[in-house]
């Protein structure tokens, strides 16, 4: 069954898959230190009060431009960075409230694929040891059993098992990313956070890896949190999409709803800026945003997007719009979402 059909059948029956992971009021502030005594002079609000959930078996896309906090969100959920506040509920437990030891038991269920296929593999380890690292840390099987599993999973991700003794630098970018996928997959995870997993790859290779991720999702019933800046990639792979701007979520919707009926001006600008590979399409209504993204160390008061927004009224610079569900499964944080809908 294709993804589209799956989604439609879900809509018809009205039954929604159960929620696998729920993030509530997540915050991560990084201190800015200055002076001889390293005094904290301010805070970079990388992630500022973010709440969303991921359903079992779906792919949730997380898009935004650099500095919007999408990577920090992904890393904080897995506690690779300690959060400032908030909770992440998974299987009836709050991951963020656990001791480190207990958290390590959950690690195998929550895995990550990294952006940089060069930097994310230890250059001094052989591929079989890279892929087996998680098993070894979790004390699964003996060495021989682990290596057998490695070979099995290498074939699953489309790598010849003849390569087990190679070093990372002997592979191409696409193959390295497959190693990274095998390393996560071998832990038998429920959720994989893909942090810009295909952005460093050439376009023809990118398609191979996206297809692989798609196949693996079906075979292993995986749930993905897919973090990327490329709207087209996110649209292709996701079921629902979260849009972030300057540490805040501005909109959450199913991908079709988001692309057809964006209710936040930033989402609309983002979609409009996205180049379409078709020279015959004339884009007259193109929105070109003015200025740069402000610094997360000193975000604008009120709605963080208001200095660049063409709809902004006096209210926007005073009052921060909450993220509200304006339609089933469509959340937006804008005072003027109704005007947006009329425009669409």
């Amino acid at each position: 069954m294709s993804k589209l059909e799956k989604l439609q059948s879900e809509k018809k029956s009205g039954s929604k898959a159960k929620i696998l992971l729920e993030v509530k009021n997540l915050k991560k502030y990084f201190p800015i230190k200055a002076g001889v005594f390293k005094r904290t002079v301010g805070w970079v609000r990388a992630v500022d009060d973010v709440s969303f959930f991921i359903r079992k078996g779906e792919t949730l896309g997380l898009v935004g431009e650099s500095g919007c906090g999408k990577t920090t969100t992904g890393r904080t959920i897995l506690r690779l960075i300690e959060p400032t506040a908030g909770s992440v509920h998974y299987g009836g437990n709050d991951l963020l409230a656990m001791s480190r030891g207990k958290m390590n038991k959950y690690r195998s269920k929550l895995q990550m694929i990294f952006q940089d296929p060069y930097g994310s593999l230890d250059p001094r380890m052989r591929v079989r040891d890279i892929i087996a690292e998680g098993l070894r840390s979790a004390h699964v099987g003996n060495k021989k059993e682990r290596y057998e599993m490695v070979e099995q999973y290498m074939e699953k991700v489309g790598l010849s098992k003849l390569y087990v003794n190679r070093f990372a630098h002997e592979f191409s970018g696409g193959q390295r990313q497959r190693v990274g996928i095998a390393r996560a997959l071998i832990m038998n995870p429920e959720l994989i956070v893909c942090d810009e997993a295909v952005s460093a790859l050439d376009v023809s290779i990118q398609a191979q890896v996206l297809n692989l991720l798609d196949d693996l999702q079906k075979e292993f019933n995986l749930t993905y949190l897919f973090i990327a800046h490329d709207l087209n990639v996110v649209k292709h792979i996701s079921d629902r999409i979260v849009v972030m701007y300057l540490g805040k979520i501005v909109e959450i919707a199913s991908k079709h709803e988001l692309f057809i009926n964006p209710l936040h001006p930033y989402t609309k600008a983002l979609l409009s800026a996205n180049p379409i590979p078709d020279p015959t399409i004339e884009r007259k209504d193109r929105i070109i945003l003015q200025g740069d993204v402000p610094s997360p160390a000193n975000p604008p008061k009120g709605c963080r997007f208001h200095p660049r927004c063409w709809l902004a009224g006096p209210q926007c610079s005073q009052e921060e719009p909450p993220l509200i569900e304006v339609k089933p499964d469509h959340y937006v944080a804008c005072h003027f979402w109704k005007n947006m809908e009329d425009q669409n």
């Binding site: 890393r75 897995l78 690779l80 390590n104 690690r107 195998s108 895995q111 990550m112 990294f114 952006q115 940089d116 930097g119 994310s120 593999l121 230890d122 690292e133 998680g134 840390s137 979790a138 990274g180 390393r183 832990m187």
Partner: peptide
């Protein structure tokens, strides 16, 4: 990132 990856693998 491989140090981060190691942590992610527990």
């Amino acid at each position: 990132d491989y140090v981060m990856a190691g942590r992610a693998l527990g």
